[in-house]
Design a protein around this nucleic acid. Structure first.
Lengths: 230, 230
DNA sequence: GAGGAATTGATTGTTGACAATCGGAGAATC
DNA sequence: GATTCTCCGATTGTCAACAATCAATTCCTC
């Protein structure tokens, strides 16, 4: 096998996907706020493409739930809630439990080394750098995913993750502080995986998600109390 | 409230969705077999629409995983496996467990009556009529879904269900016989829901899926033994 | 002023033509 | 015979113009 060079596949081969990428980025960076109107012809002239192309990109983003379309009234940036973030994270935990159960036995020694390295990287990433932090988190989990042969579950996990990443970055600053323990949780998870026991693996995966989910729930309650108090 | 008339919303307002619907149906009825090539211009003349429209429909079906596209080689009907069906069903069980947990308390007396009626309808539907059977099954579960305020989970459930329905119909004849107990399982599930206890509801929902999942697993093993024996 | 019908303007879908891109067949070379 | 190069046809993406549809405003009637 060739040595791994850090080359990534070229990302945007079509105009449509480039437009979609630009819009995604704008939403992530809050340059486009939830509820904002997205006029296709306006975007078309701004980006220098036809309105059909913009429209197809908007349709794609609608599939990804980043954009909602009100028929004959226009496209709008979707509204995101903290509750969605929690539900998504919780679901990914359930799903990953099943994946871990079906996959632990297939993990190689190399995989465990990679997992340890990834956990270290999570500790390294500063909690206030959202991109680096969540990228490291993704890298950890994807090592397990790579060994899973249940394509349906893997697909599902990826779908959830892309939406999750968006929400994590959007709300990042509200729970940044609670990320300090993240490395420890990943290490504990990894320790359990080492037993290569499906049941334990499943339980450990679910447990690994329980902490952040509960943490987010506390933030949510606080936020609601603040909102009610005003 | 108005009495329920069986009117369904008009389904295909756009040409694209009509084309997609036709193709879906053809796949479901095995008129288009897995691996079959889908030429856009050929379909375009057959259906009397432009190739762009066909192409958009194919893109949509690609999102739904019914079709795969090999860039610059064409579109093909996706390959479906029995294992996918099992994974999908199992995941929907996990998801529905969480939904039931979050929703039992909101179920009204009317809902319970509707659930009982839906369970009866499942008993009524002949196991050899796939469409009727699975439609009745969907109707039962959707009563619970309607009360769920966690939009993310509901969306996810619907996505899973549409793929699931396709696979169920595709493989229906292989496990038709095992559907006789279905009504009993639904009734047991319903009985547990009546307690309006979140934990019990979650457990009951997961249990409700365990039987068919295990049943399918047995079929899968048999099928593999047959395949190995040849 | 309230309620309803007609108008209006914008949104959306559809199309055929054109351009860019890629896979595979065959030629050329080693 | 195997490998690389070149070209061709098919696939694919993009676009601008046109047509259909619908929400919202205006106008009319009572």
């Amino acid at each position: 096998m060739e040595t791994e060079i850090g080359l990534r596949p070229i990302q945007h081969r079509t105009l449509r996907s480039t437009v979609a990428h630009n819009l995604r980025e704008a939403i992530q960076q809050r340059r486009l706020v939830p509820g904002a109107r997205l006029r296709d012809d306006e975007l078309a002239v701004q980006l220098g493409v036809s309105h059909s192309t913009v429209r197809e990109a908007l349709h794609q983003l609608t599939h990804e739930r980043l954009v909602v379309s009100a028929p004959h009234r226009g496209f709008f940036v979707a509204g995101f809630t903290f509750g969605d973030l929690i539900d998504l994270l919780e679901m990914r935990g359930l799903l990953e439990g099943r994946i871990a159960e079906a996959t632990v036995r297939e993990l190689t020694d190399d995989d465990f080394a990679a997992l340890a390295a990834a956990a270290a990287a999570i500790g390294q990433a500063a909690p206030n750098d959202g991109n680096a932090f969540w990228e490291a988190d993704l890298a950890f989990h994807e090592i397990i995913l790579r060994r899973c042969t249940k394509t349906i579950l893997v697909e599902l996990w990826s779908t959830l993750s892309s939406r999750l990443t968006m929400l994590e970055l959007l709300f990042h600053d509200t729970f940044e502080a609670s990320l300090a323990e993240s490395q420890a949780h990943h290490l504990a998870y990894l320790d359990q995986l080492r037993a290569r026991d499906p049941r334990r693996a499943r339980h450990a995966a679910e447990e690994h998600y329980r902490h952040p989910v509960n943490g987010l729930r506390r933030f949510q309650i606080q936020a609601e109390e603040v909102a009610d108090g005003e």
